[in-house]
Design a protein around this nucleic acid. Structure first.
Length: 814
RNA sequence: GCCCGAGUGGCGGAAUUGGUAGACGCGCUGCACUCAAAAUGCAGUGGCUUUCGGGCCAUGCGGGUUCGAGUCCCGCCUUGGGCACCA
């Protein structure tokens, strides 16, 4: 196959479309992308976040993410690993359901169409995906095990039911997610959103908060993602303090505070309107006002209730008083919607002097404001113009006068613990995970309600609970799931006593589907277990996971939680699912995120058709740092194509006469090292630049390359542009594909150059460069510098100081 | 408001982590090839200035540390993303 000399000028034309289809077909025939999961000796699990198969098809953002992950997977393969790179579809959920309603179709028929389209597009990108292990969360074979996972949590007491506030759109007759509410209006229809209380299933993720937080210290993840999780979990230390209610023998009011040191400044208490003790506390005279206030806040949607920053704080007085355990003073008890039932105890001690919200509220209702913390230099009794949240010493605080606030936190808590008025507690911002969805398109929650036996789990051997195909899956005004209207499905015998009972009609959240999919891929051909123990031990945890930071909290946190639970139940040997996670950046266009409303969406099909998948993949990676994303501009793609054209030509024109050029071979060694290092750390843009640079050397002055100069470059380019690499590898006469080969080794002796350009500065300014040996001494360098006319003219006096960085720089200070 | 991140030529972006700022690519200019154009190849390309040797200015703005700062420190400005009454 080696080319004879002289080379004919006209070689075959680089036709990416034909060539790419040829290799995609051949990979399929040869099962190139299907590692032997049982026998693999050096398994490497390269995971990418599976897509939601929308009707619009694959998005450039998807291609960017998948190509980036694929390049890493292919690189690992060239390092000699057996790489498993699976793909699947996250196809349940409200998006699919709403889309089906909109076009008047049924998700059971629409989803397969969308998946088919996605699969076709994904194949065209040339990913190293093992399609034998493809999965869809909507497949009963898959969601059988999603339901199984629900049952495991139920068994362990981690799944429970309680009433919770949800956003309800009266027009669409449905529960909305927080992100579907904009300024209190439904994102889709514009109707005013209400708050409703519905019975919902929850997972007790808060039981795992401490562990989820703690493991972040050691897992190898992008810092930005870890920090997002830390903030989301939101651990805060403080105390619960009990306030006795004056003239009321009932239980005391318990508040949570992170500032027990400010207790002497607590001039009133505030309860959330939904707080269970509100009714008991309210006096007869105030009950009408309190009731009116509660009705008013209940009408608000959940989101705008929490968005009150700019809005005026409102509230109502209960008529009752509590006793401040520190001062013994009577302080009024109020109800206000700025206190949330979900956080802490749903009640706070208000310290208006040192909390902005309390300050605003106290001003509005003319409640007393007392300063109890003062910076060292200020007057303790000067009136406050705004809440002081800074550091300082306690004032107006009885026996704690003058104690630094930071120190006072624990001292005041200890003192009150002694009075049985407080206990130290840790609180988390993280809430339990709402699993229920009052919708149709999801896996039914496997629970049966019996009048005698209560909520019973569906026995595991009766899974899956099949989602029935019903034509009328439109949600209605009742807030009850559409499945409840399907009588023959809804009525079932109780698994315990056999009496007629009713199925749970809620389906589960899509985040549950995706919380465990990585466990299923390697075991997708096992029907009797969710994941096979031997295979799982071999392939998991995932070696490399790449995905977007839009899933930094929910998906990644939920899948960590589910993994921990399964670990604790003995189903898994590890408790963290992803050894290494890297967040990729966002592809933008014209300075903005691509979106239909902005009209700046790029259709990947057109680009692949015009330029080829290899060029498109490589171009996307060349836009900018993979972990930061980049700006997509049509213009730049021609440069990448030109690079591949030149590679094509170089390979076809390569000769085998004589020896390769030493200078070129040196550059090649440096390139092998650079591309290897950069690709490993996902610095794809600089890896590509290094290959282009080498190409410029290779073809400088229209020289024809020696085959030994080109062949390794074909391997370097293979992760980025796998099709052309295969074709050229075959051209060079190799029997197996390029991905059967090993990443080229570089010769360390050739990487380092002996002759260097030593930079000479005078007073920190570059004044010249001298050719010198790499290991030149300072003395020798000085005399070279003095001998250089361009440099010596700046050396106006005796050197005061000489800085010499061996092999790099000489700086003469005069 | 809070938490992350980013500001470098006409443009996308490099810079061994304190040591030649602008790699690589796009665009632009010139030349070669061509009847011509496209494609391709070669050369040039931060700004100002120059007696053509060079000189000065330049990494969002203002200070500082250092022989030396895009990189470190202090104070601002702009911008992208995420979260949001979390007590």
């Amino acid at each position: 196959m080696s080319t004879s000399h002289p080379v004919p000028d006209e070689g075959p034309i680089y036709d990416p479309t034909a060539l790419e289809l040829k290799w995609q077909r051949r990979w399929q025939e040869r099962r190139t992308n299907e590692p032997d999961l049982q026998a693999a000796t050096s398994p490497f699990y390269q995971l990418m976040m599976f897509p939601y198969p929308s009707a619009e098809g694959l998005h450039v953002g998807n291609v960017f993410a998948f190509a980036g992950a694929d390049i890493h997977g292919r690189f690992q393969r060239l390092q000699g690993n057996s790489v498993f790179e699976p793909m699947g579809f996250d196809a349940f959920g409200i998006h699919s359901e709403n889309y089906a309603l909109k076009v008047g179709g049924h998700p059971m028929r629409l989803i397969p169409q969308n998946i088919g389209n996605f699969r076709r597009q994904l194949r065209r990108v040339g990913l190293m995906v093992d399609w034998k292990h493809e999965l869809s969360t909507t497949d009963a074979k898959y969601y059988k095990w999603t339901q199984w996972i629900f049952l495991q949590l139920f068994k362990k007491g981690l799944a429970y039911k309680k009433k919770a506030a949800v956003n309800w759109c009266p027009n669409d007759k449905t529960v909305l997610a927080n992100e579907q509410v904009e300024n209190g209006l439904c994102e889709r229809c514009g109707a005013r959103v209400e708050q409703r209380f519905l019975e919902q299933w929850f997972f007790r993720i808060t039981d795992y908060a401490e562990r989820l937080l703690h493991n972040l210290e050691w897992i190898d993840w992008s810092e930005s993602t870890k920090s997002a999780q830390r903030n989301w979990i939101g651990r805060s230390e403080g105390a619960e303090i009990s306030f006795a209610i004056a003239g009321n023998d009932g239980p005391p009011l318990v508040v949570f505070t992170t500032r027990p040191d400010t207790i002497f400044g607590a001039t009133y208490l505030v309860l959330a309107p939904e707080h269970p003790q509100v009714a008991a506390i309210t006096t007869a005279g105030q009950s009408a006002e309190i009731e009116a206030y509660r009705v008013r806040t209940a009408k608000q949607d959940v989101v705008s209730r929490k968005m009150g920053e700019s809005a005026k704080k409102t509230g109502a007085f209960t008529g009752s008083y509590a006793t401040n355990p520190a001062t013994g003073e009577r302080i009024p008890i109020w109800v206000a919607d700025y206190v949330l039932m979900e956080y802490g105890t749903g009640a706070i001690m208000a310290v208006p002097g040192h909390d902005e919200r309390d300050f605003a509220f106290a001003q509005g209702y003319e409640l007393p404001i007392i300063r109890v913390v003062a910076p060292d230099d200020s007057n303790a009794n000067a009136p406050l113009a705004e809440a002081y949240t800074g550091d300082g010493r306690l004032v107006n605080s009885g026996m704690f006068e003058g104690v630094p606030a930071t120190e006072a936190k624990s001292r005041v808590t200890e003192w009150m613990v002694g009075l049985s008025a407080a206990k130290p507690v840790v609180n988390f911002r993280l809430h339990d995970w709402t699993i229920s969805r009052q919708r149709y398109w999801g896996p039914p929650i496997p629970i049966i309600y019996c009048d005698d036996c209560g909520a019973q789990p569906v026995p595991e051997d009766q899974l899956p609970v099949i989602l029935p195909e019903i034509e009328d899956f439109r949600p209605d005004d009742t807030g009850i799931s559409p499945l409840a209207r399907h009588e023959e499905w809804y009525r079932v015998p109780c698994p315990k006593c056999g009496k007629l009972a009713r199925r749970e009609t809620d389906v589960s959240d899509t985040f549950l589907d995706s919380a465990w999919y990585f466990l299923r891929y390697p075991s997708s051909d096992f029907d009797s277990v969710p994941f096979d123990q031997t295979i799982t031990r071999k392939w998991l945890p995932v070696n490399s996971y790449i995905g977007g930071n839009e899933h930094a909290v929910l998906h990644l946190l939920y899948s960590r939680f589910i993994t921990m639970v399964l670990h604790d139940m003995g189903h898994l040997t590890f408790e963290e699912p992803y050894t290494r996670f890297r967040a990729h950046g966002l592809i933008i266009r014209d300075g903005a995120k691509m979106s239909k409303s902005k009209g700046n969406v790029v259709n990947p099909d057109e680009f692949i058709e015009r330029w080829g998948a290899d060029t498109f993949r490589t171009y996307l990676m060349f836009l900018g740092p993979f972990e930061e994303g980049g700006d997509f501009r049509d213009a730049g793609i021609s440069g990448v194509r030109r690079f591949l054209d030149r590679l094509w030509k170089s390979a076809h024109d390569a000769h085998t006469d004589g020896e390769p050029d030493l200078a070129v071979m040196r550059k090649l060694q440096q390139t092998i090292r650079k591309v290897g290092e950069d690709t490993a750390k996902l610095s794809y843009n600089t890896a590509i630049a290094a290959m282009m640079e080498y190409m410029n050397v290779l073809r400088a002055s229209e020289r024809d390359a020696h085959r030994a100069e080109v062949e390794p470059l074909v391997q370097l380019v293979a992760p980025f542009a796998p099709h052309i690499a295969e074709e050229l590898w075959e051209l060079f006469g190799h029997e197996g594909g390029v991905f059967e080969s090993r990443w080229p080794k570089y010769d360390p002796a050739l990487v380092t150059v002996d002759e260097i350009e030593l930079v000479v500065q005078v007073n920190g300014k570059v004044r010249g460069k001298v050719q010198a040996a790499r290991d030149i001494t300072q003395e020798r360098a000085m005399s070279l510098a003095r001998g250089d006319a361009g440099i010596s003219r700046f050396i106006t006096g005796e050197p005061k100081k000489i800085i010499f960085v061996p092999g790099r720089l000489l700086n003469i200070v005069v």
